[in-house]
Design a binder for these strands. Sequence first.
DNA 1: AAAATAAAAACGAACGTTCGTTCATTTTCA
DNA 2: TGAAAATGAACGAACGTTCGTTTTTATTTT
Lengths: 204, 204
Amino acid sequence: MPAKTKETPTKGEITRLAVEDAAIELFLEYGYHATSMRQIAKRAGLALGGIYNHFKSKDEIFEGIIIDKHPYRTILPAVLEAEGESAEDFLRNAVKIAMRELGEEPVFIKLMFIEMAEFNGKHGSLMLKEIAPKALPIFEKLVKTRKSLRVSNPALLMRSFFGMMISYYITDIIISKSVIAKLMPKNPMDAYVDIFLHGIIKES
Amino acid sequence: MPAKTKETPTKGEITRLAVEDAAIELFLEYGYHATSMRQIAKRAGLALGGIYNHFKSKDEIFEGIIIDKHPYRTILPAVLEAEGESAEDFLRNAVKIAMRELGEEPVFIKLMFIEMAEFNGKHGSLMLKEIAPKALPIFEKLVKTRKSLRVSNPALLMRSFFGMMISYYITDIIISKSVIAKLMPKNPMDAYVDIFLHGIIKES
DNA sequence: AAAATAAAAACGAACGTTCGTTCATTTTCA
DNA sequence: TGAAAATGAACGAACGTTCGTTTTTATTTT
């Protein structure tokens, strides 16, 4: 019999996950403070008091969520395995992988809004401290080894890369229900990445 | 005697502004739902009930704020007056003007977070509908007349432009208290705009 | 200019509701 | 058979809003 690596989840673990899933849905829809413990309990399918067998407080639910849904869990490791001959290939692949992991609805991006809007960035440093140390070396290596890069500052390159990703999803949310969305190219993300790589100005 | 263009503000107008100013500060710090009417009243320097002589509800305060602080009020008109021989000059100037109007602390950007996080984009369409119709023609003209542009889709160009601005402020907020901020170039916005204009890849 | 007056503004107690959390108890699970 | 999990009533606190009243302001009339 192998050492117990992954037993069948216990009842408590199932409930705990159900609470987190319910809370995510509600937080994304109404925000953190406008979501009540009663709503969470109802959607998770248990009584109000039952939540407190798995979480000490409402805050702890949110913290549990941002830990479980944190990009360093799945997205970052996947992105770090991106490959490519040139810097351009590498970054294109990295974006593709990140998008695949983020999925259609970028839960983490929206959680970031909530965190910034309702917690004033209280958990922000935690979020960043997990990502930056892992990602920065990649961009440092990129700058050093790929001569095809115009940008020589790794931190700036990293900021620009993540900024591009974030701004894509934000503008997507903002324009998704407007006529502007219909004016976008077929693959807006490809076009977006292309601008990041080559800029908007035609080289003379 | 000139037609009455701007009389001295009445008492009510002064109080109304004081309430909005107090509310902005608190909303930016704690978010909308975590800010109470009592906090707003206290900071504005009047009694709880007094607020309701100027606003019908808490929601109406927020709406009053996003109308007063809306970019189409001051930022957009200023940006639309940007000039420049080439598209690059024009866009560089536009960014400079936008930054000057946004100021050090981009209140509108943070209000946008609150709106997205706590109102699920309820006012979003209003925000966009005011900006897009006014800004899009500028980018259309830009694409048509400036042959130096790689990007031919005006809507994409506009989205990319605003996305770049937004992502600059977001990443600034995120990294401002981390070591990454110290790794940035002297003028990060200039470097950021440069990437937007020319991309990160060196043309062969 | 002073007095009168009606509207606007300010006040703070009070209302009904909802909030997050606790608790004693019962049920389910290992 | 003990521990873990689930229950829902209960608690005190805080919420947005209302209300009757008083004070201040702005305008009109002396």
